[in-house]
Nucleic acid binder design. Structure first.
Length: 116
DNA sequence: GAATTGACGGGCG
DNA sequence: ACGCCCGCCAATT
């Protein structure tokens, strides 16, 4: 189940490091993570990476702080992950509407550069 | 290997 | 605000 090229392993790891930097109580988007990695076309792959990590980094990776560019929690196919994500966010003080939308003006984290 | 899928984004009506 | 469509590309089928 883990037949991956070195290229994509690097990408997965890069996503991991960025997501780990999202501050508590804040959210960012798949697209912005791709932008920070200088791969603005790869927003969909960011989602793939999070799916990849869900099997063994559930507690150390704050995956729930990643939503889509319009401020909504992305629906999963045939999964309740969307609702789990909403609860995780509410647990850290993020206001999530009944339609699973979040005000990016209040809770968004969109730095122009990665500061290492 | 070809076709489809998807935790996406942006533009347009 | 909403839905539709098209571009994108690794992973999956």
């Amino acid at each position: 189940m883990d037949r991956l090229t070195d290229e994509s392993k690097n990408f997965h790891h890069a996503v991991y490091t960025v997501v780990s930097k999202i501050p508590y109580g804040h959210v960012t988007s798949y697209g912005h993570i791709a932008y920070l990695l200088n791969k603005p076309q790869n927003s969909r792959q960011v989602g793939s990476s999070l799916k990849h990590y869900q099997y063994y980094n559930l507690d150390t990776l704050p995956w729930w702080r990643v939503i889509n560019s319009v401020g909504k929690i992305s629906p999963r196919g045939n999964s309740n992950g969307e609702y789990v994500q909403a609860e995780r966010l509410r647990d850290e003080g993020v206001i999530v509407s009944s339609g699973h939308k979040i005000d990016l003006e209040d809770f968004g984290w969109f730095p122009d550069e990665l500061d290492f």
